[in-house]
């Protein structure tokens, strides 16, 4: 990989990072919103570095490098290095693996990967069966359910809802009307559907599924977004032993402009 190629790869990579953050919000499909400024900074740094390298190269630093460079077959030289036989090296060239830096560029400009959706939920179905066990953290809810007046509709994130449903031994959720937003995932056995939302700590690779089963009404199309109002179906017996929580819907409305896909 010669130096012009290295410079152009850096420029393209920088352009990809900037395209995903500045004119579009594509990066929200992959990472936390807080990463935005860092991605911009990284994109600018790479683009500047790439341009700087190309300019320097065109100005003729190449001739100097030629003095350092080995001539002849690159492969043979590389082979010699692997076996520790040769010690000189031409630091102006990059290994072939660096071409792979174009893959993220292709991903952004050609594929534009969407946010994770129903496929990811279905393929990780059993892993997401239960949220974190209490382990001394019950009573630590951030959902404002206690503060809300009786009879008031409480908007909850799915994460908060699922946490309540599994952990709250006082069952404060029982009988309360709550409002949840998420996307639809048809259940595997055809009985009803899940309202699901992915919770992300850092990037989509660590996304964790939160979902609730809805059995009344027609099954909506996979990956369509919905805001539902209704109540938690209070399970019998120990909360820990529940496999999945159910939700009775009273009102349901399709969301046309889905928010940040992750919680």
């Amino acid at each position: 990989m010669n130096r012009i190629a290295q410079g152009l790869v850096l420029v393209l990579l920088g352009a990809a990072a900037l395209t995903a953050t500045v004119p579009t919000n594509m990066y929200l499909n992959w990472v936390k919103p807080a990463f935005g400024p860092f991605l911009i900074a990284a994109g600018v740094t790479m683009a500047v570095l790439g341009v700087w390298l190309v300019i320097a190269e065109l100005r003729g630093e190449a001739e100097e490098h030629a003095h350092h460079a080995h001539t002849g077959d690159d492969e043979a030289v590389a082979e010699a290095y692997v076996h520790g036989g040769d010690h000189g090296h031409d630091h102006s060239r990059a290994p072939r693996v660096a071409w792979l830096l174009l893959l993220p560029v292709l991903a952004v400009f050609v594929v534009a990967p969407p946010a994770l959706g129903s496929y990811a939920v279905q393929s990780t179905a059993s892993e997401s069966a239960a949220p974190p066990r209490p382990e001394g953290r019950s009573g630590q809810f951030d959902d404002g359910l206690e503060e809300a007046a009786e009879g008031e509709v409480v908007p909850l994130e799915l994460r908060q809802f699922v946490m309540r449903a599994w952990i709250d031994e006082d069952r404060a959720l029982a009988g309360r009307t709550v409002e949840l937003t998420g996307f639809a995932v048809p259940a595997d056995d055809g009985e009803g559907w899940y309202l699901a939302r992915l919770q992300m700590a850092c990037c989509a690779a660590d996304a964790v599924v939160n979902k609730v089963l809805i059995t009344d009404g027609a099954v909506p199309e996979a990956d369509s977004w919905w805001t539902v109002r209704g109540t938690w179906v209070e399970p019998e017996g120990e909360l820990y032993d529940v496999n999945e929580h159910r939700f009775t819907v009273t009102e349901l409305e399709e969301v046309t402009d889905p928010p940040d896909p992750y919680e």
Binding site: L103, V111, P113, C203, A204
Partner: peptide, 15 residues
């Protein structure tokens, strides 16, 4: 899904 996770890992690590 694969593309999303791959891109996410790359762009999360990039900064």
């Amino acid at each position: 899904t694969w593309a999303t996770i791959f891109t996410a890992i790359c762009f999360q690590a990039l900064p």
